[in-house]
Design a protein around this nucleic acid. Structure first.
Length: 271
DNA sequence: CTTTACGCCTGACGGC
DNA sequence: TGCCGTCAGGCGTAAA
């Protein structure tokens, strides 16, 4: 569930549940995640309280009294908040057990996600240094995108999914934002003017904020949901709609591949 | 430097 | 029913 809106929805869901809670112990069941904090580092979290729950790009940041734990959901990661007695299911790799009888549990069947431990704020470490601006920051506008795209030949869809350019855009919302902007995903990033990039920047924000709002409607179900709050309630225009009529002009939505990722677009509206 | 290809993992689905 | 290929919302690295 990995794009920015899903991670933000998780953040909003768990923040009120775990802020101020004290860690009793941690349980790591898998050592083969893409990234994994060491058992000894994780053990140091015992006794610490959750100070805040933050997000940067698609990373979820648990800020404890002394240390930080950074979670990435990969393609299939999810979190659950359950009573401590609940037995782990398949692919439940990590538990953060609190002293009030509840735990936060990380599940990831494909193990593309992972955990990172840090003694200092990740906002000042190399991990985040290379990330582009958050989509809702003032830095993201037409001039910014146009400047970085100058001379580049990669498809604009790959360009906006590059986390160094903008943080948090994944395959679904890249497709959707380009549809709203009337830009063909395969168009070379360097062959789009500042005006069209301004439109695109606005539509990126629009798509992401709609998705976050949709996620928000299911936050209160977080404790009992399957760990993917809000995800399926988002109305999509093109993603996964191959052969369906374009909501704007009625032409058939086409599917293609750009950079080994599936791409959907309206051949009539998007140029 | 930019761009492309691949690997990491498991599960779901469609065709035979 | 089972087997097999293909696909999946991400990202890091190697190679061209």
């Amino acid at each position: 569930m990995p794009e920015l809106p899903e991670v933000e929805t998780i953040r909003r869901g768990i923040k009120p549940l775990i802020t101020g809670k004290k860690v009793l112990r941690t349980v790591l069941r898998s050592s083969r995640l893409r990234w994994s904090a060491s058992v000894s580092d994780l053990a140091a979290l015992a006794g610490q309280e959750v100070v805040d729950v933050e997000r940067r790009a698609k990373y979820l940041i648990l800020h404890f009294s002394d240390d930080w734990l950074i979670l990435h959901m990969g393609m299939t990661g999810s979190l659950r908040y359950r009573p401590s007695g609940c037995p782990p299911a398949k692919h439940d790799h990590f538990d953060l057990v609190f002293d009030d009888g509840f735990l936060l549990r990380f599940r990831d069947p494909r193990k593309f996600g992972g955990l990172l431990f840090s003694h200092e704020s990740p906002f000042s470490t190399p991990l985040f240094a290379g990330l582009g601006p958050e989509p809702f920051s003032e830095q993201l506008d037409g001039h910014y995108l146009h400047g970085l795209a100058r001379g580049r030949k990669i498809p604009v869809k790959n360009f906006i999914m590059d986390q160094k350019i903008i943080a948090g855009i994944g395959n679904i919302y890249a497709n959707e934002a380009l549809f709203l902007s009337g830009i063909r995903p395969s168009r070379a990033a360097g062959r789009i003017g500042p005006g069209r990039y301004e439109v695109l920047a606005g539509n990126i924000r629009r798509v992401l904020s709609h998705a976050i709002e949709a996620g928000g409607t299911s936050i209160r179900d977080f404790q009992n949901s399957d760990g993917r709050p809000g995800y399926f309630s988002v109305q999509l225009n093109v993603y996964g709609k191959e052969g369906c009529p374009c909501p704007r002009c009625g032409a058939r939505i086409e599917a293609a591949r750009t950079g080994q990722r599936s791409t959907f677009f309206c051949p009539h509206c998007q140029r």
